[in-house]
Structure formats: C-alpha cells, structure tokens
Write a protein that binds this DNA or RNA. Sequence first.
DNA 1: TGCAAATGTGACAGGATTATGAAAACAAGA
DNA 2: TCTTGTTTTCATAATCCTGTCACATTTGCA
Lengths: 224, 224
Amino acid sequence: MPKLLLVEDDMQLARNLIRFLSSEQYQVTHAPGQTDALTVFRKEHFDCALLDISLPDGNGFAVCSAIRSQSDTPVIFLTASADEANTVAGFDVGADDYISKPFRPRELLARIRNALRRSQRSTPVLSCQNICLDQSKGVVTKNGSELFLSALEYRLLLVFLTNKEQLLTRDRLIDELWSASGEYVSDNTLNVYMKRLREKIEDDPQNPRIIRTVRGLGYKAVEA
Amino acid sequence: MPKLLLVEDDMQLARNLIRFLSSEQYQVTHAPGQTDALTVFRKEHFDCALLDISLPDGNGFAVCSAIRSQSDTPVIFLTASADEANTVAGFDVGADDYISKPFRPRELLARIRNALRRSQRSTPVLSCQNICLDQSKGVVTKNGSELFLSALEYRLLLVFLTNKEQLLTRDRLIDELWSASGEYVSDNTLNVYMKRLREKIEDDPQNPRIIRTVRGLGYKAVEA
DNA sequence: TGCAAATGTGACAGGATTATGAAAACAAGA
DNA sequence: TCTTGTTTTCATAATCCTGTCACATTTGCA
C-alpha cells in the first residue's frame, strides 16, 4: 500500500482527501503545516508527497526543497491559483507535478499513480526461463551472469523473446534478421545461427529447452 | 541543445510551436502523424516527446505506448479537450505529463524543462568505478587524483556517466558530441576519441574495464 | 525398415568493425 | 610569429564476426 504525505492546512479539504485516497488503497499521513511535514518526513518513508502551496507557517515550496534535498520522493503541488508564476516556481524547486484546485478526484489519482510509476520505472526487460535480455543495457544474462552474444545472435534472441510462445517460421526469422540489409542469405545460415545461439543460452545445446525446433515449420521459444 | 520530437497534425500549430521552441534553444523534429513519428523515433534519440492525442493515422496514446516500450524518453501530451477520461488514459500508457490546449507558452516550457530535468536527474557528481566527474567543478578524478581531459574527452565521459550501464550506440554518441556543431565527422573520429579517453581513465587501456566495446552496437560504461 | 528431406555441426575464408600510430589542420596564447 | 595543445583524418593492423561449404544426424513417412 503506497504511503502518501499530505501537507494541507485546510482541514475540510484534508479530511475529504484522506477519505477519498484511503478508499483507493493509499495510506495517508496528514501534516497541517511545514514544521509537522518536515518532522514526519524525516522519520518515515513516503512514496509521494502532496503539498499545498500556502501554509500557515511557511509555504509548500520550502517543504519541497527540503524534501528534494534529502530524497527523490516525488512531489505534487496542490495549488489554489492556476497562476503561471506559481507553476513555474513550483517546478523550479523540483516538483514532479502540480494540480490546481478545484481538481477532479480521478485526475489527482492519475497523477499520483503516474508519479509513483515514474519513480520506480524499470527498464524494459524480456525474459524466458533463466534467460534475460535488457534492451536498454544491451545485455543478456543467464541466471544473472552475463552472456556475450554477437550482434546477430542478440537480434535473433530478441525476436524470439518478443514473440515468446509463438511459432516463428524460418521465412519470418530470415526476414527479421536479413531483410533490412537487402542481402539474401543461404537457408542454412539460419541453422548455423540457431546452433550458435543455443550453444550460448541453453544448458544442454543438444537438448534445447528454451528454443524448440518445430520441424517443417520453424522454431519457438517456450517458457517451460 | 535538447532534442524534442513534436507529433502534431495541425500544421499551423506545429509551425508556431517549432518557431517558439527553436527560439528557446530546443531542436525540434516534427512528425505530422503516427507512422512518421515512430519511424523517426526508432532512428534518432530524443530528450522529450510532445504528442498530440488526435492524429490522422492513429492516436497519440499508441505512439506513447510504442515510445515507452523501447525507451524512457519523457512524453508530454498536448490535448484539445481537458476531458478527464483522456487525461487518465494518457497517464495509463505511461505519459509523464499532459497539457491542454490552448496552453500558455511559458507553461509548456516549464513542463518540458521539468520533464528533462526529471529524466536526467542531473546529479552534480557522477562516478563509475574509480572515476569521478564533478560537473560543478568541471573536474575528473581517478582515485582522487585529477585527470586532465580535453573538452571533447570530458563531454564524452559525461555522456557515458550520465548513462551508466546503458548501451550507447555509435550514432547516439556521435550525435551527442557533434550534432550541435552541425558538422559531420568521420565515423572513425569516434574510435580515436574512445582510445584517448580510455588511455586516460583506464588502468589498462588494452583491456578496458570501465567503458566496454559492444561490437556491432556501440559502447557502455559498467560499474563492475 | 529404409529413404529422402530437414536440421545440426565443425571448420574455413573473406570481410566488416574496431584499435592504433602518426601526422596534418586548427585554434589560442605568449 | 612561434609554441602548445586540441581536433580530425588517414593508413594500417588486429580482432572476431559472418556466411558458406561439406558432411553428420535426426525425423517423418512410405
């Protein structure tokens, strides 16, 4: 259950928000002013902070700076005025988003979800059995240890992992790997690359369990 | 100069945005539809994408999903309706922000800056293994003692450290180092710079352990 | 069972890619 | 102007990837 820190001095609004957010499975901690906010923040971990800009004992910007100086917790401002200057200033102290009152509950939810996802966004990773392929890193691992594939082997594996459990015909594979270069390779070339790839990714290349041969049709990568 | 991808079918609006953003030191690439957008995106690196939701050949959500599936490039939606459903749907495909037309130029700028900052988490001090780069001081150290890099070597190292563990293609590197100057350097120039940089930062330049070569693809800086 | 087709395997030549040394073009300062 | 250091290119070497051949093995089917 994600933990939110709500810094808001308007008690009426705060109560409503807490009720609404709780019903949406968020655990909300409420701080009515800057001092409370920073005290709580130093003691506990939060996944996201919702800050009102105008506070009795300071302002939300100061709170945001303080938060930012000690963590990457996403910050969303709740602002009464849609005033542009405020907006810009808010971003300049490192806010992740802002929303002006009165706001629609579902929009607030969407922005919170968005902030949370962004803060834990992970790189797109493909996998099959004990093989992982991280595209942004350009790395293939087997049980966590790195495998070194050539460019073509990498692309071949990529095709299999993006089409897991799907039958890939020999024609389709040859097309994916070589059509771009305009060259036409001998049919046997694919056999050779399948062998090379299997030698690197399979535990027992003679008995492939990750990429299976479908005789007469092609190959497919299977999960189990 | 940050590179933006603008996907917008309203030519009038697109022209205005390009003029405005260019004057603010952004390099804008314009794609009028989904197909163009994805084609361009696959070929080049962008720091942020601005997507119109309604496009002649599809919609912005599809473009956003496609972008998100292959990179962390921040996405900002430009939407005609402030309609809540659209908003939420936008966030659900992984958008970073959205702004509804008509929007104030300065607000758009703020949101772009915000998205850029968030994505590069500009830490003042970057490091990898025994190498440190302090951006505020403009100094590179190895085990604490200072290294003297030329301007280009410094920028090259900076690109690697801000994208640690990530595969950087040769195209991307050449783009980062030379696209601003408008000059097009020979492909081999990059090889020469890699060699020089390695000669300064690596313990054994023949066996580079900080920046690895990924044959056929590019290079990457690794922690271990 | 035996045969023909499909797939797997080991080795090799040529080639694309990257690394390297040296040297010309260029810029900035003394 | 001369010096110094940087940037870029060129020519060449080292590396290892790629595609193909010949041949072995497996499979499905008659």
